[in-house]
Design a protein around this nucleic acid. Structure first.
Lengths: 226, 226
DNA sequence: TGCGTTAAGTGAAGGGCGATAGGTTAGCGC
DNA sequence: GCGCTAACCTATCGCCCTTCACTTAACGCA
């Protein structure tokens, strides 16, 4: 047996090999696209977020279609996988904004944002890994600068940091550089928790809270230099 | 053509398909093991650290042997890949110790350690990704608790943090929790630089220096709580 | 009602992968 | 020179992604 993939296929045969599927009506070819996305997401979830364990064949079987039909809507497997994760990316921003709205204090709001970030990653390890921990070569063409740097989530973080600066809660400095540092810090926690989930980590909330506290205390100072 | 793997096979055919190879003498079966490791490392480097682009067949060809011979020395592909990365793990600790020895001041020593960590990851993205960013299911059995938590590198970090506490340079607290936070922070930088290498990041040294400065300033305070 | 057009989907195959079962050859002591 | 066995190979299974050429079904229109 091919080991190294955990074989979670026993989670339920309610998905596997749905046999028929009526051809979509004339102008509605895009219907299949949605069904493919839905099935892929389910399989990705069932596999514990291991995109290698999700196969085009498996998706095709789950939809009730043959593999080549997938390629009518997605250029290759990577594009399909990333398309599934796009909605999670949007939800991440939503969750962060929701969390940040939990306090009027800019600092506390930033802390809440950091906690929510880590929690999101831990709760959606599959999409998180694909979005933020995959090899650069794996991401499709369109997933580059504008997708992350100009993304809503990052911009919202920069705004939050700027808010802290404006309120005098942290020392002034390049808000983008500070944002990158904050992002890297909470991403580091998330990434380690996901990759080394077998190690005896502290509670994610406790860890992210501690990290945010330390960062904010540090940013309160000059954090001198340029 | 199978896209998504960058096709770096053009780097040089000096490795590919070395045809013969004399059978090893009677008690020297382990010789092949070393040749396999060496070839795998070379291929892993040539592929830009993409373990999926390194195939058992390719390694066998490079060594001048047939694929089943690989399995005489490694249980499966993952074990082979991780075996290659083990030496890099040891070198990481060496590099960190060397960097930390660059200053007698505990704080400056910790900063140097953080910078060296990020630099190592950026210089060895392949092994770093496999060691610290891979799926938990991918790591072999023996690569767990004792391998990281009780590893030299982590213990050395804890000692460095304890040194800062003893010197009164940072507030007292659980050195392990602090070490985890420091590790997560520099790992976050490294991970983002590796995965999103296409984004316009600041200089790695500058980024890690800034992160360490902020963390240390923050840890100087109480960073209250338990 | 019937028919051409064309979107929607297949069948079959190419090429590559990890892994295994069972056979073969070459080194070495005697 | 001969057997034993470590060292290695041949052949194959089953899976994967992807593509090309082909078929079938929906629909406007006469």
């Amino acid at each position: 047996m091919t080991e190294g993939t955990v074989d979670v296929t026993a989670t339920g045969d309610d998905v596997a090999v749905r046999p028929p599927r009526r051809r979509a009506p004339r102008g509605q070819g895009e219907l299949l696209r949605d069904e493919i996305l839905e099935a892929t997401e389910r399989l990705l979830l069932d596999s514990g977020g291991d995109e290698a364990a999700v196969s085009i064949r498996g998706v095709a079987d789950a939809v009730g279609v043959t593999p080549p039909s997938i390629y009518l809507h997605f250029a290759d497997k990577n594009e399909l996988i990333f398309a599934v994760c796009e909605k999670h990316f949007a939800e991440l921003d939503r969750r962060l904004q929701e969390a940040a709205a939990g306090s009027d204090d800019p600092l506390e709001s930033l802390r809440l944002r950091g906690r929510a970030y880590v929690r999101f990653g831990v709760e959606h390890p599959g999409p998180y890994r694909i979005l933020f921990m995959s090899k650069p070569a794996m991401a499709p063409e369109w997933w580059t600068h504008e997708r992350i740097q100009e993304s809503a989530s990052f911009m919202h973080l920069v705004e939050a940091v700027q808010g802290c600066i404006d309120a005098g809660a942290i020392a002034s400095g390049d808000p983008i550089r500070i944002s990158v540092a904050v992002w890297a810090a909470v991403h580091g926690i998330t990434s380690l928790l996901i990759s080394k989930s077998v190690l005896p980590w502290p509670d994610p909330d406790e860890l992210s809270s501690f990290m945010c506290d330390v960062l904010i205390d540090g940013l309160r100072e000059a954090a001198a230099h340029s």
